[in-house]
Simulated assay, not measured.
Amino acid sequence: MAKKSTRAAYGEALAEIGCNENIIVLDADLRCCTKTEKFAALYPDRAFNVGIAEANMIGMAAGLAACGKIVFANSFAMFTAGRAFEQIRNSLAYPGLNVKVIGTHAGVTVGKDGATHQCLEDLAAMRAIPGMVVLSPCDANEAKLATAAMAEYVGPCFMRLGRLDVSSCTDSIPGYSFTLGKASLLKEGNDITIIATGLMVQEALAAEAILSAEGISVRILDMHTIKPLDKEAVLKAARET
């Protein structure tokens, strides 16, 4: 099965929805890494490289959003959720501006980029901000759907993306659907439930295959939206498994 990183799929989705003239894309000197170069090539008048100045990028995003634009602000998770936390909190979330903050290269799977770029705190930090929607897609298909959903949603969002290529799983699951704020049921089961997000969804599916061979029925919930959390799906699973 072909593999693709969620950041690569995001870049493709951004280019596809770029026909919306209200969409503006900002980068902090990492366009080739955040995979926004396709959008920039198609719509150069709506793509801006602000340089290594993430805090300023968020300030620019706030100003553009205040003028009615849909802004995607991109960098590594360490530099958006980390370095620009104050600006995201005060300039975007506090006034509820329509900016989509993207954090690529999140978690420990950043390869040669090393420990300084292994942002482990991004989901916790972004969840703590009132009014912030937080997303963590598990594969390329879901990353594309999440990108389109964010563009339609009015308000601040943060999406965590990975560096490594990952196997696709959601596009081969019958009945799969993506709804912002609702967990996706990937496997039905009655004995136990595994709730996973991001690249750990593939690990959950691998665990389900092992447990199924042992006669254990496993429900898999893909919690692509960390905030708002789908409490109903969690409580339903707790009652039924």
Rank of each mutant, 00 (worst) to 15 (best):
S172W: 00
M223P: 03
C169G: 00
A2N: 12
S5F: 04
K69I: 01
S184L: 04
N22Y: 01
E214V: 00
L64K: 13
K69D: 00
A213C: 05
V154N: 11
A84C: 06
V50Q: 07
S168E: 15
I102D: 01
R31H: 06
A9T: 08
K3I: 11
G131L: 10
D191G: 10
P44C: 12
V71S: 02
G11Q: 08
K144I: 01
E188C: 03
A125T: 12
V99I: 09
Y153D: 01
G111F: 07
E142P: 03
M57N: 05
I173K: 11
A237W: 03
C19N: 14
I195T: 13
I210Y: 08
L145F: 01
C119I: 05
I173Q: 09
T225R: 09
N190M: 05
I195L: 14
M150H: 07
L211D: 05
Q118F: 01
D122N: 09
E54D: 08
A151D: 02
S217D: 13
G96C: 09
A84V: 05
R127N: 12
T193M: 06
I58M: 11
T116Y: 04
E54R: 14
V134P: 01
N20Y: 07
V133G: 00
G181K: 14
G175K: 14
A66L: 12
L26F: 08
K35H: 12
A81L: 04
R160K: 15
P95V: 10
A77D: 02
Q87F: 11
A125L: 15
K236L: 04
P95Q: 12
T36E: 00
V201L: 11
A149I: 02
T197L: 11
Y43V: 07
E37D: 13
L221A: 09
F39V: 05
K69R: 15
E232Y: 02
E240W: 01
G215D: 04
C169I: 15
L123I: 15
V234S: 04
P130H: 10
V218H: 10
D27S: 15
P174M: 13
N22I: 01
G131S: 08
V101D: 01
Y10H: 14
A183K: 11
L64V: 06
R127M: 10
G189Y: 02
D222V: 03
H117E: 02
N90H: 13
S136D: 06
Y153L: 05
G189P: 03
A9W: 02
R219E: 14
V201K: 08
M150D: 02
Y176R: 09
I216V: 15
M57A: 07
V218N: 09
Q202S: 14
R163G: 02
A47I: 07
E121D: 13
L211Q: 06
V133K: 13
L123Y: 06
L92F: 01
A209R: 15
I17A: 03
L185W: 01
K182N: 07
L186Y: 08
C67S: 15
N90W: 01
K69H: 14
A209Y: 02
A125I: 14
A148C: 03
R219Y: 00
L26C: 07
A151R: 07
T6H: 05
C32P: 00
A196R: 05
M78L: 13
A140P: 00
K231L: 12
A8E: 13
A204F: 07
G114L: 06
G11A: 08
K144Y: 00
A209G: 01
L14T: 03
A8G: 00
A41G: 06
